[in-house]
Design a binder for these strands. Structure first.
Length: 689
DNA sequence: GTAGGGTTAG
């Protein structure tokens, strides 16, 4: 139409066409029209210029937008708003605010549109006092009259994001007009502030007002509340509601449902939902990836990631932050390095959340040095960065380094939170620093005013009991202000096993049984304690009881990454193609280490077998198989790194020390709990295994 | 103007 010479475009035509370009982010067409307008002498026209600014801002061509703005002979509030909104759109707070301030120097006053662009910025920065000023200004300027719903919604959202739900509610109540966005903003605010039950109540109130308010956004918030409260029943009701209303195929609603099911552990439902979705986007894929990782299916997560790439759906920060922990779980360093490369290529490597995930990944893959490197160079650290790094030192038994980092954190005026202390106490526990651990616990309450949660008590019991202070740990549990849950008792029971204290172990086991059928692992521990004492009948009884109650013990599994491929073994496993060589190697190792004085600690065998058979049962534990495979495949200069899903058994711990001598290898084992660095007949953890 | 997927501890 523009090329039709008989009807030349005029100042009324250009803005509309430019608007269409902006909506499609079609910069090429937009620039062509810009030139066209210039030839027609209309490029400095108020409406044309404003439309150009809008287009360039949406396409992130800031210089072009600024040029147009600067060349305008006169500007109205809409032109100023276009600049402000453009910067706000790209999260460029400083630039946006600079335009607001410059606007004050003119005789123009901010209008409703200005505030609607401005308030989300303040919300994101949690700038409550500035937000209040804006609120006051909007009242003085009577901006509630026109566009009242928009200003009101932006205000209530700002208050909610600043954590001031009371103000948000009073704005909400004072609003004469409310629409679906208003309701959504308020419900979302309650979810954000972790007030899930009230969020539900609001959602119900909203439905009572009429179905016209129901929107994918409000359902999404309600589903988040379900996931957080682990209330699957309501979640399913919402699923039905969605199916009945016209929102069945909405992408936002579908993604929320998928995520809710995944978080509830119903990964099959989540997968089915994903497969049914006609349109899938980055969020859908990320939700499924994170679902698999959260449910311990890291390999499936990689498959979904590959499918995503094959379908040309672009991964973003959240996708990678979901995927990287899959490498951490598998301790698959090569996969992790690949993911690291991928975030560098995508230009998202400096993002704080990406760095945090990488720090965790390298720590769990045995490369605490690389964790620290990332930590040191990352552009901005948040509390998660510090906690992750401290936790990383913890699992490596580097309690002193963890403490040093805490001091560093204080010097940089970063406030520790409750998780920081969980990490610190656990770090002490893994390093045998009992006194220091107790000090952190007291400091947390007295100096930082953080009330201990169950997790802190679990850490303390673990610290004391693992350090051999079993009675003190027992006393500690008795004196807790909270009712100890199965995890607290489990920590004590685990230590009874290590320190072979059967009497206390039995007592603790009774406590656990009283608490009901919560801890699967505890049956195993109790049974192990009986076995260790040679009381096999009782051990068997516990196992039978466990079976009757329907608990499955997850089998011990160890794996090793060789050239980027994972090789997994379970105890006595002969499924690996190189099994004959592996078993031969282990038998030969046994001969060599016997010469050095090794004696099998058969108390770790769970069945009642003859001594020689016991020795064999021990010899073929999964961690030993994986290590033997490593010895056979990797060159002598390479450290062998094996990961086990459960705790390393005590006999394995001893054998691995000997292995480092007879095969002259450095061996690292990551178990469910921590890292064990074996070298020259020693283990880094000493007796705190 | 609202909103779906995400990193630490256990």
């Amino acid at each position: 139409m523009l090329l039709d010479r008989r009807v030349p475009p005029n100042k009324y035509t250009f803005p509309f066409v430019l608007k269409a370009c902006a909506a499609r982010l079609d910069l090429r067409a937009g620039r062509a029209i810009h030139r066209h307008a210039a030839r027609a002498g209309l490029h400095a026209d108020l409406f044309v210029s404003t439309a150009l600014i809008d287009l360039y801002m949406k396409c992130a061509f800031f210089r072009h937008a600024t040029n147009v703005f600067d060349q305008m002979p006169s500007r109205d509030a809409v032109a100023w708003n276009a600049m402000l909104a453009g910067y706000a759109l790209h999260g460029m707070h400083q630039q946006a605010l600079a335009y607001l301030i410059r606007m004050q120097d003119t005789r123009l006053r901010p209008n409703a549109s200005t505030l609607v662009s401005l308030l989300p910025l303040l919300a994101q920065q949690r700038a409550l006092s500035q937000g209040k000023s804006v609120h006051a200004y909007s009242v003085r300027a009577c901006l509630h009259d026109k566009d009242g719903v928009l200003v009101g919604t932006a205000l209530l959202d700002m208050y909610a994001k600043c954590g001031h739900l009371r103000y948000a509610c009073s704005v909400f109540e004072a609003m004469a007009d409310k629409n679906d966005v208003t309701w959504s903003a308020l419900i979302g605010g309650f979810v954000l502030c972790n007030r899930m039950l009230e969020a539900f109540r609001l959602f119900k109130d909203m439905l009572a007002q009429g179905l016209c308010f129901l929107s994918p956004t409000s359902v999404a918030s309600a589903l988040r509340a379900c996931a957080s409260l682990a209330d699957l029943r309501i979640g399913e009701q919402l699923h039905v509601l969605l199916a009945k209303s016209g929102l069945r195929s909405d992408l936002t609603a579908g993604n929320s449902l998928l995520s809710m099911y995944a978080k509830a552990g119903l990964i099959d439902e989540a997968t089915a939902l994903f497969d049914e979705m006609v349109v899938k986007d980055t969020v859908s894929y990320s939700a499924l990836i994170s679902g698999y990782v959260q449910n311990g299916m890291a390999d499936e997560a990689f498959l979904v990631f590959r499918r995503m790439l094959a379908c040309s759906v672009e991964p973003d920060v959240a996708t990678m932050v979901s995927l990287i922990p899959a490498c951490s779980h598998l301790a698959a360093l090569q996969h992790g390095k690949c993911s690291h490369g991928s975030v560098i290529v995508r230009g998202i490597a400096p993002e704080t959340s990406i760095c945090n995930a990488l720090i965790d990944m390298y720590a769990k893959c045995g490369r605490i040095d690389l964790s620290r490197q990332i930590f040191d160079v990352m552009p901005a650290r948040d509390i998660v960065s510090w906690n992750t790094m401290i936790a990383g030192y913890g699992i490596h038994g580097l309690g002193k380094e963890a403490a040093a980092l805490f001091l560093d954190m204080k010097n940089r005026a970063c406030e520790p939170d409750d998780v920081t202390f969980i990490c610190l106490i656990s770090a002490c526990s893994h390093s045998g620093l009992v006194t220091e651990g107790k000090r952190w616990f007291h400091m947390m309450e007295q100096k930082y005013g953080i009330t201990p949660r169950m997790e802190h008590y679990i850490g303390m019991v673990d610290l004391l009991a693992r350090g051999g202070f079993l009675d003190e740990a027992y006393q500690f549990i008795q004196s807790m202000p909270l009712k100890a849950d199965v995890r607290v008792w489990g920590a004590l029971l685990g230590a009874c096993r290590v320190h072979k204290n059967i009497d206390l172990g039995k007592q603790v086991a009774k406590m656990i049984q009283k608490l009901g059928p919560e801890g699967t692992g505890n049956f195993v521990l109790l049974s192990n304690i009986f076995s260790a004492a040679g009381r096999f009948d009782e051990a068997a009884e516990v196992r039978i009881l466990q079976k009757e109650k329907g608990f499955k013990k997850s089998p011990g599994c160890s794996w090793i990454e060789i050239n980027g491929s994972l090789h997994a073994f379970i105890g006595g496993d002969r499924s690996h193609p190189q099994s004959p060589q592996i078993y031969q190697e282990l038998d030969s190792i046994l001969v060599d280490i016997n010469k050095l004085g090794y004696q099998a600690d058969t108390s770790f065998v769970l069945q009642d077998l003859e001594d020689e058979e016991k020795e064999k049962a021990l010899l073929y534990h999964s961690e030993k198989l994986a290590i033997a495979f490593g010895i056979l495949t990797l060159g002598e200069d390479k450290t062998i790194f094996v990961t086990k899903n459960l705790r390393v058994c005590g006999d394995c711990h001893t054998v691995i020390k000997y292995m480092t001598l007879v095969r002259k290898r450095a061996i690292i084992v990551r178990d469910a709990n921590r890292f064990h660095h074996f070298k020259n007949g020693q283990c880094s953890c000493g007796d705190f295994w």
